[in-house]
Amino acid sequence: MTMATGTMGIDTFHSFAADIIGGIETVIDGKRDAIELALTTLLAEGHLLIEDVPGVGKTMLARAIARSVDCTVNRIQFTPDLLPSDITGVSVYNQAEMEFQFKPGPVFANLVIGDEINRASPKTQSALLESMEEGQISVDGATYPLARPFTVVATQNPVEMEGTYPLPEAQRDRFMIRISMGYPDEAAEVTMLRTRETSSPLDRLTPVVTLEQLTSMIGLVRNIYVSPAVEQYTVAISQETRRDRDLRLGASPRATLHLVRAAKARAALDGREFVLPDDIDALAVPVLGHRLIAAARVAGGASAFQASSIADIIHRIVAATPVPLGAGESA
């Protein structure tokens, strides 16, 4: 974890971020919330799960992010016959040098786009997911570190669709944020038709920040201040998800960690040097939504379409958690 801590100021950060968002917005119309969340994930060194029906721009978003940042990008199309080594890479015997040589797989990139991740077998899925968590790959007894920064943007179709292996809870937990694109509104869809008429806007997208600058931005996010009050508030929310009777599975400690890290990125994107409870509130559903499992009596499951009841529960918990404003202060 030798990350160069950038000396970037918050203002520079803000303008870079605005440029990135502006660029992506030319590709994805009317989805600013999703774009912001995606960028948040990138800056917080998390992984993003985009869950939605086909054709709403999941892959487009992932690719737009990749294009906006001057970094290495690999795309993996997950299919049922994809093998783990297709992701991690294989050791090949080099006859000239009389030894096994490691051929890195597509996972060795700053940004890895995993399309339709739930179409691959669980075995293959977990190969990617383990690399996401550990930041390194072990093949034939040798360990190969992955690139820094490293972010996986996985897209997933709703579980009801045919030929899919839904991600198990433990795997979903490794994604920092889940977003669902949703259909564009009428105006956005009309704009989209017009812009796609001649050429793909993706082609016109040029990198806004270099890898170095991105690293500096990530460094700045790491240094965003989280007050004890906010930590307390976040933990209180997590604890409550474990106690809540409407939930079968509460937030993991990793979820708490992800929530705070994402909140730091969101604060930085907002031009602030400290995290507010509002950041936690705003990110509670995107960060926690895919990790919680409703109790049997609550309708709906983990998929984006049925997650509204989970979102309701999270909203209720957030709304009921007091915001700590300091010792002895009740107002």
Partner: peptide, 10 residues
């Protein structure tokens, strides 16, 4: 009606 669960921003 101000609630304790409100953030300052809200």
């Amino acid at each position: 009606a101000l609630r304790r669960t409100e953030t300052p921003r809200e």
